[in-house]
Computed example of a mutant assay.
Amino acid sequence: MSDEQKTTDLPTVISDLEKVVKEKPDNVVARHHLGLVYRQAGRVEEAITQLEKAIELDDQSMESMINLGAIHFDLGDTEKALKLNEQALAISPKMAEAHVNIGLIRQHQNRVADAIESYSTAIQIDPKLLTAWINLTSAYTMNEEDAKAVEAAREAVTLEPDSAMARNNLAVALYFKGDFAESKQNLEKAKELGYSVDPRFIDALNEKLG
């Protein structure tokens, strides 16, 4: 789900944006960004209020829809999250990020085949979208399509060799495909890059390698 670049000086940014919104209540951009920093600060209800207001002021505000959907997904309301991403797609059918988000929702609902379809659509639109390849890898793994999982994982690593998650996903996909030595190499790389690897996976892999 969408999550824009983190802001470090939250109190100052919040204060500045609140002043803008107070002076210009119809400023969609200010409300959108205020919603984002509220979310980052853990002020979830206020974030929802600002993003909803941004959409009310501008019914074409796709980024507000995407980020509001992310909040509802985190809160466990997948139906609201799905509706908001579908609303964004109705405005811009080639919005790859929304297709990825819908895939993530479907995967969370155990609709894995539908998730794969959504991720694949996102990749057709933007072949360099890393999150689409990473999520597609995990969906193929869930669906026990091990060769396809490895292929997707390799694409993700090619796009971003220093992505810890892509490396871990490749390690997992290779494990299920039976390529234990290469799995171990990518697992070590994921750890080196700071990924918190599941200890159970480490134990299972070491057992396979003897």
Rank of each mutant, 00 (worst) to 15 (best):
M1E: 12
S2A: 15
D3P: 01
E4H: 12
K6I: 11
L10E: 08
P11I: 03
V13R: 06
I14T: 00
L17F: 02
L17H: 03
K19I: 04
K19Y: 01
V20Q: 04
V20H: 06
V21I: 08
V21F: 04
K22T: 14
E23K: 12
E23C: 04
K24R: 14
K24M: 12
V29I: 15
A30D: 10
H32M: 12
H32S: 09
H33E: 15
L34M: 02
L36H: 11
V37I: 09
Q40R: 07
Q40P: 00
A41G: 08
R43K: 14
E45G: 08
E46P: 06
A47Y: 03
T49H: 14
Q50E: 15
E52F: 05
E52R: 14
K53P: 10
K53S: 11
A54L: 04
I55K: 07
I55T: 00
S61D: 15
S64M: 01
M65S: 04
G69H: 01
H72A: 04
F73Q: 10
F73R: 11
F73A: 14
L75G: 09
T78E: 10
E79G: 00
L82H: 11
K83W: 08
L84T: 03
N85L: 05
E86C: 02
A88H: 00
P93I: 03
P93A: 03
A98C: 02
V100I: 11
N101Y: 01
G103I: 10
L104R: 13
I105P: 07
I105A: 02
H108C: 10
H108A: 15
V112P: 07
A113L: 13
S118F: 05
S118T: 08
A122T: 13
I123G: 04
Q124W: 09
P127K: 11
L129K: 09
L129N: 07
L130S: 07
S138W: 12
A139D: 10
M142A: 15
N143T: 00
E145V: 06
A147H: 11
A149Y: 09
A152K: 01
V157G: 06
T158M: 14
P161K: 01
D162N: 15
S163W: 03
N169G: 03
V172N: 00
V172D: 01
L174N: 07
F176P: 00
F176A: 07
D179V: 11
E182L: 09
S183L: 04
Q185A: 14
N186V: 04
K191C: 08
K191H: 09
Y195Q: 09
S196T: 12
V197N: 06
P199A: 06
R200P: 05
D203M: 09
D203S: 10
L205C: 05
N206M: 02
